[in-house]
Amino acid sequence: MALKVDHVSYLYEEGMPLSRKALDDICLDIPQDQFIGVIGHTGSGKSTLMQHLNGLLTPTEGHIYYMGRDISAKDFDRKMLRSKVGLVFQYPEHQLFETDVFADVCFGPKNLGLPKEEIEGRAGEALEKVGIPREMYSMSPFELSGGQKRRVAIAGVLAMQPEILILDEPTAGLDPRGREEILDQIRQLRRQTHITVLLVSHSMEDVAEYVDRIIVMNQGRIMYDDVPKAVFAHYRELEQVGLAAPQVTYIMNALKESGLEVDTQATTIQEAACSLRKVFSAVGR
């Protein structure tokens, strides 16, 4: 197990009158080579949990183990952990600061104390992975479009060559085109490198098609942790906590209720269309 979260709780503003439990007894295993979607609405604790995974926050109770070693231990190398567990924050383009794109991506590997060739090699590789063309390397990050900036920021974390990549709402604030581009890049990255990706999102539609596993968070607890189809089967419970299953799930369930023999497990348009075509051909249309 690459990362193991063992009964972790976290209190905000510990000891203060306003303190509240942001995480409540979380247990989680994160293996290598898996694509995981983390769903929950604002305040569900998902961002807090993600910041625990690379040691930016320390649990109030419980432990987190990376490759079997407790990351809160005194002699544990947290800098190494941060390079192995890459975390891309929400609106990551707000962290860009260098005068050109290439230099900014070099920042991460430079902090790891690598030799110059290695740094530049990694930066080039990372930029290639997120689809930033060479002629943009010397441009100022602030000349780029919103979607491009964001991809440069993601490259900045990829250049550290993490084994686990956490993306906190990578599509927030982008238009449909930018959203699609980012999600496509992430999918491609998964295919090429087999790193574990945790995709944090509000949107079930964003994750439904691609991930192997969905973790649903609510009020600091894990509500579901299962394969997508099994999670979406709870669409009524999800609705109650203000989260929605993909629209297709609702359509298929509504059709089923109207007496049609359709596959309610369908989560994508293609699956739904396929199931409906069968129904139509059965009655000879």
């Binding site: 539609e205 993909p246 629209q247 297709v248 359509i251 348009i269 293609q270 739904a272 269309a273 409906l276 075509r277 139509f280």
Partner: peptide, 11 residues
């Protein structure tokens, strides 16, 4: 495009 509209279009 909303998923309902897309599904109808596919069909």
């Amino acid at each position: 495009v909303p998923q309902v509209t897309l599904l109808a279009y596919e069909l």
